[in-house]
Amino acid sequence: MSANPYQVLGVKPDASQENIRAAYRKLAKKLHPDLNPGNKDAEERFKEISGAYDLLGDPEKRARFDRGEIDASGAERPQQTYYRDFAQRPGAASGDARRYESTEGFADFAESDDILAELFGRSHGGKAGIRMRGPDIPFHLHVDFLDAVNGATRRLALPDGSTLDVTIPPGIRNGQILRLKGKGRPGLGGGPSGDALIEIEIVPHPSFTRQGDDIRLDLPISLSEAVLGGRVDVPTPTGPVTMTIPKGSNSGTVLRIRGKGVGRRDGMRGDEYVTLTIVLPRTLDPALESFISGWEAGRRFNPREGGSS
């Protein structure tokens, strides 16, 4: 005698089809035998709920059941073979299911324990095989500011005495980790090597600073250049360029040099922003001093008051 299918699914006799389906899904997610490889009871319970759902999930069958034309006993599903039955078979008998098995989930145990390495190294075949991926090696690499901005190649010495050429892509950020596939320690049982993980530390530059893709630079200019304007050489990450300082430039004026910023992956570059700072000559020139003392307009101008000029 089978149990009442409504009770099996935990729904009321007047539940909607929607509710019945939701109740079934909820139970099936918990009880599907393949999602419970080690639970023997799951199969029996899953059979019960799927049988109940076969009956109630079909409005026509459900109506016949409600009218008493059929009973719940007819609803049992034929014996089903689950995937877990194949995956559980010991040794060669399981043959076919073995190729799906993965040992990724405990590769780290086998790395540190020779008994477990023996255990997992013995089987053959399988998806990840019983091959074990080698561990990653962490590195720390100091990179010059300009190398980080422009990109560079650096040579790393590995613990085993060999060397590794690391390509630093332009625009790399401080703290970024470069992963060099297969440059870590070798794998077990023919497994792939681990990766080299290189943490980048950028050494600051004495004059350039970086803001995202842009470079900032403070540029000292003379009083004459500020007043009269002129062309000056400005350092950029790729070498000096000539820039025009407009007539009447001030300390704090920011000029932009397009395309001279930080290199990017797409081959473009950010911009360089140059902040001007007016620097007076180290020794005060008597001619300048006498001009300034007789300069009425200069006297009237108070830069600490807004508006006046």
Binding site: P37, G38, Q88, E101, G105
Partner: peptide
């Protein structure tokens, strides 16, 4: 993927 790992673990 997780099931395949579980079966690998269970075999171990």
């Amino acid at each position: 993927d997780l099931l395949d790992q579980i079966h690998g673990l269970r075999r171990g």
